[in-house]
Amino acid sequence: MPEENPTVGRRALIGGGLASAVGIGIAACSTSSPQPNGSTGAGATTGASTGGAATSTPAATASPTGTSATGSPDAVPAILRTPGPDVRRGPSAVPAVALTFHGAGDPALTHRALQVLADHGAHVTVFAVGTWLSQHPELGRALVAAGHDLGNHTWSHQTMPRLSASAARTEVEKGAKAVAAIDGSSPYLFRPSGTPTSTPTIRAAARASGYARCISYDVDPSDYLDPGAAAVASRTLSAVQPGSIVSLHLGHPGTIDALPTILRGLASRSLQAVPMTKLMA
């Protein structure tokens, strides 16, 4: 249906679940278990790794068009709109990495992170918990205005494999609506909560809200365990490679304290911190 506002058109598709026309399942999604401050823990991913090019043939979907998180029509890479396995890392030929944050916790920490990122000219992706984003929409607006990607990390951060099909669908759908309420957010970025792999139930719930793939990662410094800033930085920098996707958490002070060291370390290796939509482009 034609829309006067293309962004509204895209979000209407997500909120109403019309993108369930995607007919191919997605493989294992993000790893995590519930942690304090609404953040998530992480374990070893077991899903298929996705490189810089889509390996599946694009299927007919109800993927909407309009303004993406990058601010231009259809700027979200096709690989994120194409059904397939979870995205565990980007192309290794690209001198960039994606720092991805689970969005929850003390708003003051998010403001600190925004300042550090601005100071270093870096951009990241935040997968926001819907309840947190709904309580602090100004944070979502600030993230998008600063050029960061904003995606969905479910509504209330449940352990999704324990949920019924109906409950799982509600978690994804309500999270998608919370993200869509922030102008300029991305309707293609989803990371499930409370599981190292997706299940058929999670995949169906994701498809129903328009998510062709889940975003996982290949670098996990276990910052949710609060090992200290030095440990978070050293674990990240020792594991990161060109194309890596790093799992971090906004709700932990040690992570924010580690961020300047991480960004300086990346720069020393000529690696740029970029949003998911840019890494996968």
Score class of each variant (00 low, 15 high):
H136R: 04
G84T: 02
S268A: 15
R81G: 11
C29K: 01
P253Y: 04
T154Q: 11
V246P: 02
A12K: 11
P91M: 01
P95M: 08
V144I: 13
R112S: 14
T55E: 13
S222Y: 08
C214Y: 03
F101S: 03
P83G: 08
R81D: 07
D218R: 08
Q115Y: 01
A281Q: 03
L80P: 02
H123R: 15
S20R: 15
A180S: 14
L279F: 06
V97K: 05
A44V: 14
T159F: 06
A267C: 01
V124S: 04
C214E: 15
S247M: 08
G43N: 12
S209W: 04
P6L: 06
P200R: 12
L225N: 14
G243Y: 06
L133M: 08
T236Q: 10
L18P: 00
M280F: 00
E3G: 01
M276L: 15
S30Q: 12
P95L: 05
P73W: 02
G147C: 07
P221G: 06
S216V: 04
D119E: 15
T255M: 04
R112Y: 02
P107I: 04
S209A: 15
Q241R: 15
S193A: 15
R169D: 14
T67F: 13
L18E: 10
V179F: 07
D149P: 06
L259W: 09
L117G: 06
G175R: 04
I245K: 03
S222V: 08
V246R: 02
A229S: 15
A48M: 10
P77D: 00
A231L: 04
P2Y: 11
M160W: 09
M160D: 11
T7A: 13
T154L: 05
T110W: 11
L18M: 12
Q135R: 13
G16Y: 03
F127P: 01
L109H: 02
A12C: 10
I202P: 08
T261K: 10
S270F: 03
I14M: 14
A206D: 05
A104H: 02
L163C: 10
G121N: 12
D119T: 14
P200F: 11
G15S: 10
N37Y: 15
A27V: 00
L13H: 11
D106Q: 08
A122L: 07
H120A: 15
T45E: 08
S268W: 01
A44G: 09
G243E: 09
A178C: 11
S193F: 09
P34L: 13
A281P: 12
G251H: 05
I182C: 03
P58R: 12
A21S: 13
S247Q: 09
G147H: 04
N152E: 04
I245F: 04
G151M: 03
A281F: 00
S222D: 10
S186E: 11
P192S: 14
C214P: 00
V126H: 09
V87Y: 08
Y217G: 02
A62M: 12
K174T: 12
S186A: 14
P200V: 09
P6F: 04
C214H: 08
G254C: 07
P107A: 05
A113P: 05
L266W: 06
P91R: 07
Y211W: 08
